[in-house]
Simulated assay, not measured.
Amino acid sequence: MLFLLRMLLLTLHFVVAGVLGILLGLCRPFNPDNSRLCALMYSRPAMWILGLKVETDTQSLREHVRGAVIIANHQSNYDLFVVGGVVPERTVCLGKKSLKWVPFFGQLFWLAGNVLIDRGNATQAKQAMLTTTDTLQHKDTSIWVFAEGTRNLGKGLLPFKKGAFQMAIAAGVPIVQVCCSTYVKHMRLNRWHGGTIMIRSLPAIPTSGLSLDDLPTLMSQCWQQMKDCIDGLDAQVERAC
């Protein structure tokens, strides 16, 4: 019963936050700080509705130099609510073009200045990559990417796609890694306390001076660091349960 009530309230909240986000976007369209404000509108009420406690250790993310590629693990559609509270200022997200057609959220996502990519169109995807490079270098803005490219559904960190790392190397900007504990395994939405989630950011990795020849090593380094961090967060959550 509690689960059904939470889903009803979450759906209502999703619609209300979407409408408010669209109004914000219409007032200042494509402002790169819209994403952070909209993420907060989605995240904080949702965490209260779901009864989830989020513990964060994200100093390196809060203090990062603008113009960074931020990569995070991608577990489920709940990521919108879970990591929304740690999105830093002037950060836009890289997403699939199909998101534009999701009612309320899609229009908000576009107006917030996020980058939409048609992965099935190589020409458009290349143009979007050039746009993101310019954004990182000249517009005092960071880009958030779920480096796995798809949801892992709590089954472990999937291999990374190249796009985020190519962007960072092309723009010569640092990579900031954000790791979230495997909350999909621990959520108990039919209980008052839905569970505990831990989020930690890792020290920035500079890419200045790197070339595409360094891409495999960079991807492997980031993947292993994030896996080790997520495993550590999961162990902490297990001990706290």
Rank of each mutant, 00 (worst) to 15 (best):
P32T: 00
T11Y: 10
F109D: 03
Q137V: 10
I199C: 11
Q59I: 04
D214M: 00
K162Q: 07
A128R: 07
R62H: 06
R200M: 11
E63D: 13
K227S: 06
Q236V: 05
Q107I: 14
R44Y: 05
E238G: 00
L8P: 08
I169V: 12
G21E: 11
C229F: 01
C179L: 08
W101C: 13
I143H: 04
A122L: 07
L212R: 12
A235S: 07
R119P: 01
Q59E: 11
L5R: 14
A170P: 15
A72T: 09
C180F: 11
K185W: 07
T207G: 09
A72G: 04
V19I: 02
G154I: 07
I143L: 11
I175W: 04
H64G: 03
G172H: 09
V176K: 03
K161S: 12
V86Q: 02
L136F: 03
L130A: 08
G84S: 02
W192A: 06
V69D: 13
C38K: 03
W48P: 12
Q166T: 14
N121K: 01
K185H: 06
A240T: 07
Q127F: 06
K155F: 12
G154M: 02
G67T: 11
S76F: 02
P103K: 03
N34H: 00
V87C: 00
S208Y: 13
V184I: 06
N121M: 03
F14P: 05
Q221C: 09
A128Q: 00
G84T: 04
S208N: 12
A125C: 11
R44P: 08
P32Y: 12
A168I: 08
G195Y: 15
G18W: 08
L99Y: 11
V102F: 12
D57C: 06
S98F: 10
V145W: 08
R188V: 08
H64K: 14
V92Y: 13
L111R: 11
L111A: 01
N73A: 01
M167L: 09
A204D: 14
D228W: 10
I197S: 03
R239A: 00
G149D: 08
N190F: 08
V19P: 05
T217D: 09
D134E: 10
E148T: 07
Q124A: 09
V87M: 12
C179G: 03
T132N: 08
L4C: 02
R188Q: 09
E89D: 15
L94N: 05
I117A: 07
S201H: 14
R119K: 10
R62W: 04
I71Y: 06
L5P: 11
C179D: 10
L50T: 00
L2T: 15
G95K: 01
M41K: 00
C38Y: 05
G163N: 02
A147T: 03
S220W: 05
M47P: 00
V16W: 03
W48Q: 10
A168F: 15
K161C: 03
T132W: 03
Q236W: 05
C27A: 13
A240Y: 03
G154K: 03
I230V: 02
Q127T: 05
R66A: 04
P159N: 04
C27F: 14
V173H: 10
M226S: 08
D79Q: 08
K126M: 15
W48A: 15
W223Y: 02
N31C: 14
D234C: 04
L61P: 04
R200C: 09
L153I: 13
T58C: 06
G232F: 01
A164L: 12
T207E: 01
L210T: 14
L233S: 06
